[in-house]
Nucleic acid binder design. Structure first.
Lengths: 185, 185, 185, 185
DNA sequence: TATGAATGAGTCTTCATTCAT
DNA sequence: GATGAATGAAGACTCATTCAT
């Protein structure tokens, strides 16, 4: 019989250790970028000994890849929520615009995603991760609209993200709605 | 009569030195990213002694900013060409789609521009540079079309760039034309 | 029974490593001054790799502080000897003068102490170290004499040190005795 | 006929240039120490081009020596004032104590003088400079008191300086008076 | 299994000094 | 005479990575 929860708790929990490290790395990527990641930074943030970061991951690349994968997983979970909201929506473009504006209000998230794209551009093994986002978006929008239009919208929203990243003002919601309405009809 | 430009041209030519360094840095940003830039790399590429890179630029930040500014200047010159082509075009969306596809066929350029966005996201002093691109695009498209639509197109094209960056296939030109046609009418 | 001290003694002996480095730094401060200290110099003198000097001390400041602390500790041990000798002495001023002359015969030691004062003048965190010397001196002289006079003597001896430092001749022992006798009666 | 004051003023005034540089260097020694002096720092402070600092002085050592000499000259001028005040004084120890306390209220001056001593300890060519201070002091006190006592006082005051340098409290004037009175009678 | 010690390569940066102009 | 350009050496410091324990 396997013990599902170790009695002593915490001690000897490789799975948990790994997760701690990955989450710390993910946080840090938003702050300092993939290129700014270091073992020491991650270890400090995760509250684990330095050795742990090299014990669980062969490489810094390996570590950053794991962090980006973790991020993508979370993003995909977010997408499921979007799917639910969009399916229940009477006005697809408006709802989508609102979700987007809300999403981009968190600069960290936009930064993270852009980091992922840039990293993927240079490291082919990361491309599947980067693609997951706009493919996912295309998929859930495609469930309520024309597939070609859905792809165009996914691409457009990438642009909105990049555009918002270098401006201080929040997203221009009315304009966004208009654009989406145009693309989706 | 004093010789205004020394024949040998190299020794004692501060202006030229600076330019050499900036151009080397610009090249390198495409290859290794802003975060991957080092004085040594730049010096080697520019064929100048290490000390020159720190003599002309107080900082690596200063150097990368100069390189990105240089890049933006070049991009803006490209935009003028676009403007000419678009003004002469009978089919705006189609022409724009072709220009874009051609532009993105050079991965380096797309990478460079994305680097600029990411750098600008973290370093506010670079934001004006990043904005110049889509503002310029908006402006020249706005000369032939509705301003609001022009902005939407500029944003969309940012998305296309990001999208193309993480995929091996070239841009899907027909789909691009369709999207642009939709946004511009 | 586990061997408490490994025979070879050197590899994997953090405590020892630290001490080696600190002692090398202390030596060097006498030779080149606190401001002349460099990681390379210390590493070479200590016979450890360069990285070791930055591994054990976050900073050059940290390293020099440790070295000065080490020095102060040694000085304090010397003071205990002085205390013993002074307590046993029939002629306090004469004995003190002799101890001082002997102490200052080693220019390195005087230099070191002056370096400590100068460093402390600029780096407040070092002040307690600098104070330890004359406070200690005051204390042990105060054990055999009037406390106020003891303080005056401690201050006077600082002056003797500085005075001796810039002259080639050894301390003028008779004059020193006279001065001390004056201050102590 | 020699023009005593150049018409244009300022331009072509090598003497003045030199002085500017020396004064800037003297200021800086108080702030960063002899070891912290750099051509660039001096040039910036003096408001002269970098080249000027190497044109007028063969060496950094040469420059710092000139600065210290300048300082010593000024100190010697101060001593003349002391001489006047002491000669007019009815209570030598008290007056001397007051002069000293006032002198040491300016930490910069004390720091400067200690820098001179340390520099002199390492660079024999500077020793005459360092000696000038306590020799001068000895001389002017010797004019009103026993020569041997005067020397003891000069030495004692060196100690007071060093002592004050590492403490935040101002000099303990009553104690100082007492000590001086003891030494001078 | 896990980790702190260890290190050498490499980073940015500062500077004294030289020299062409 | 004066000065800005130029550069190579050197310095502090960071780190990925390895390895003994």
């Amino acid at each position: 019989m396997s013990r599902p929860a170790p009695a002593g708790r915490s001690r000897r929990d490789p799975e948990g250790r790994r997760r701690q490290i990955v989450e710390a790395a993910a946080q840090l990527i938003a702050e300092v970028g993939v290129a700014g990641l270091t073992h020491r930074l991650v270890a400090a943030r995760a509250g684990v000994p330095l050795g742990a970061t090299t014990y669980y991951f062969t490489d810094l690349d390996d570590l950053s890849a794991a962090a980006l994968r973790h991020l993508t997983d979370r993003m995909e979970a977010d997408l499921e929520e979007w799917a639910a909201v969009l399916n229940a929506s009477a006005d697809l473009p408006a709802t989508l615009a609102e979700l987007t504006a809300e999403y981009l209000a968190d600069r960290g998230r936009a930064l993270l995603e852009t980091e992922l794209y840039v990293a993927a551009a240079r490291r082919p093994e990361l491309r599947p991760l980067a693609m997951r986002w706009d493919d996912g978006l295309t998929r859930i929008i495609g469930a309520c609209a024309d597939p070609a239009a859905a792809r165009a919208v996914a691409i457009f929203l990438c642009g909105v993200m990049l555009y918002a990243l270098v401006r201080d003002e929040p997203v221009d919601l009315p304009a966004l709605k208009t654009s989406l309405r145009t693309l989706l009809t």
